[in-house]
């Protein structure tokens, strides 16, 4: 009975604070995504030919570790019994990926880059939670930032 009470309290704490944190995070992601639209990110492996003269490139990356809250982990445990979409992990990975890309863009801007090419995303589950649930994921985004020195042969 006592243990059940503790689990219930943990679930309530996880639900309220987890929801608040997620909403706050999504708001900040959406705001910063609009802000960083000035630094486009491409997945193409080659630079456009007309861009090539007079530029510098540098490696930039962004990474984040995000964990899911207790309530969602509990839900996911139930979901694993019947199968189907695991919404709680979908939003976790979505948040992590978008955050990693934003940090990549932030670093690119810091280094004076104007756009980022050949962006790769890598996801890994670093700490296996209790009973092999996902728990927390790390997402790394990396790419090559292009720093324009001065447009050559154009005023």
């Amino acid at each position: 009975m006592f243990e059940l009470g503790i689990v219930l309290i943990l679930l309530i704490i996880g639900y309220t604070f987890g929801r608040l944190a997620e909403q706050r995070h999504y708001r900040s992601i959406i705001r910063r995504e609009a802000d960083y639209r000035r630094i486009p990110v491409f997945a193409t492996r080659h630079l456009p030919k007309d861009l090539e003269p007079g530029i510098k490139t540098t490696l930039v990356m962004g990474s984040v570790v995000i964990s899911v809250d207790y309530f969602k982990r509990f839900l996911a445990g139930l979901r694993a019994l019947v199968g189907g979409r695991m919404k709680s992990y979908e939003s976790l990975i979505d948040r992590a990926r978008r955050e990693a890309l934003l940090r990549l863009q932030a670093q690119a801007e810091q280094e004076g880059g104007e756009m980022v090419f050949n962006v790769k995303l890598e996801t890994s589950s670093i700490s296996k939670g209790a009973r092999n649930t996902v728990g927390s994921v790390e997402v790394l985004a990396y790419g090559t930032a292009v720093i324009k020195q001065r447009p050559p042969d154009r005023e």
Binding site: A21, V65, S67, D69, L140
Partner: peptide, 22 residues
């Protein structure tokens, strides 16, 4: 991180650790 695991969100300590390692 264990405490943070309860409420979810970014685990800053791990982010830094992995950045250092990388």
């Amino acid at each position: 991180a264990g405490l943070k695991n309860l409420v979810g969100g970014e685990l800053k300590g791990y982010t830094e650790l992995l950045q250092d390692a990388r």
